[in-house]
Design a protein around this nucleic acid. Structure first.
Length: 324
DNA sequence: AACCGTACCAACCGCGTCTTC
DNA sequence: GGAAGACGCGGTTGGTACGGT
């Protein structure tokens, strides 16, 4: 993208509003990063002001969510992630945030871009048809196939993939998953929450920072998130209809890309127990993100069909680990 | 080497929803 | 109850990278 020094023009253009637009400079990134790590998330317009950024809160929010968040996974989508995106899109349509919620470390923007730039074209080429019936505009989920008969090939692939994924983990894995939450006394990433935390027994066994929970490589990751959908032990059935968002399993590799001081800051923070998955005092609300999406609230607009949807999803063979 | 077209992606914009006063 | 501000989402834009000619 544009080099920071080429943004002078932008700066000049935006003198009137005093608010910068365009690409973020490394200095701005660092300011925002520092502020978020020190103060945590709050009102975005306050964050923008207090962090000394001449940006609107909206811009700060976007930058944080799409780029600075330590748990973001960068790089190409794995074939398994592609499959999952295709599958979820066939069900959810262009509800990128909901799709992203099931792909650890991926943002809605990233998935949206990937869909529009890659998958859409690929399907046009190979199929002369759309990747999913939603592709036409995607705003409305189609009737999904679980009740209806023919299962598209990619869904069979996903089933196979997930069966492999859980062939050695199944129920106990998911119980561990649910029981293995982290703690959070100070969380600079309230939006991320510990709900993403701990991709199951693998995490419990290996420890977060040693675990390379590569999404789509067979470790428990995003598929596992479905696993808590019907875990009634927590009495959270309804809330669990919105499974966890991203895991933090890629924090370390992202941290490594940060300036040293920030890196140590983050490490200190996490080592101080926030991701200590042996902490038995974990909070349910942290684990499941009551701070945000799944706040135990009523379904919001646009989620009206989601519960039923997920119920249908639970009928997928590859989700059988839930009820074994 | 220069040009062109395409792919990719960061960021903005507009709108709907939620929250607060 | 209504207005204002904040937030979140999806669509779109615009710039850079890259490959082909």
């Amino acid at each position: 993208m544009r080099k920071p020094d080429l943004m002078i023009k932008d700066r000049v253009n935006n003198n009137k509003s005093k608010l910068r637009k365009g690409l973020w400079s490394p200095e701005e990134d660092e300011k925002l990063m520092r502020y978020m790590l020190t103060n945590g998330q709050g009102c975005w317009s306050d964050i923008a002001r207090n962090a000394g950024l001449q940006r609107c809160g909206k811009s700060c929010r976007l930058r944080w969510i799409n780029y600075l968040r330590p748990d973001l996974k960068r790089g190409a989508f794995s074939p398994q992630e592609e499959e999952l995106i295709i599958h979820l899109h066939s069900i959810l349509g262009n509800r990128w945030s909901q799709i992203a919620a099931r792909l650890p470390g991926r943002t809605d923007n990233e998935i949206k871009n990937f869909w529009n730039s890659t998958l859409k074209k690929r399907f046009k080429k190979t199929n002369n048809s759309t990747p999913s019936p939603n592709d036409s505009d995607g705003s409305e989920p189609r009737d999904h196939v679980t009740g209806g008969g023919v299962m598209p090939m990619h869904e069979l692939d996903i089933m196979n993939m997930c069966m492999e994924t859980f062939s050695s983990s199944s129920t106990s894995t998911m119980q561990n998953f649910v029981a293995g939450g982290g703690c959070s006394q100070f969380d600079p990433f309230p939006m991320l929450d510990n709900r993403y935390d701990m991709s199951g027994a693998a995490a419990a066994a290996a420890g977060l920072f040693n675990m390379q929970a590569q999404v789509g490589t067979g470790e428990i990751g995003f598929y596992g998130q479905y696993g808590i959908l019907e875990d009634n032990n927590m009495g959270l059935e309804r809330d669990l209809s919105l499974p966890p968002l991203e895991s933090r399993s890629h924090i370390e590799e992202n941290i490594n890309a940060r300036p040293v001081d920030l890196k140590s800051n983050i490490n200190n923070h996490f080592n101080n127990g926030c991701f200590n998955n042996t902490d038995q005092s974990f909070k349910v609300e942290n684990m499941f993100g009551f701070g945000n999406h799944a706040q135990g609230e009523s379904l919001k607009m646009g989620e009206w069909d989601f519960e039923g949807l997920m119920q249908d999803l639970s009928s997928f063979p590859f989700l059988d680990f839930q009820v074994e």
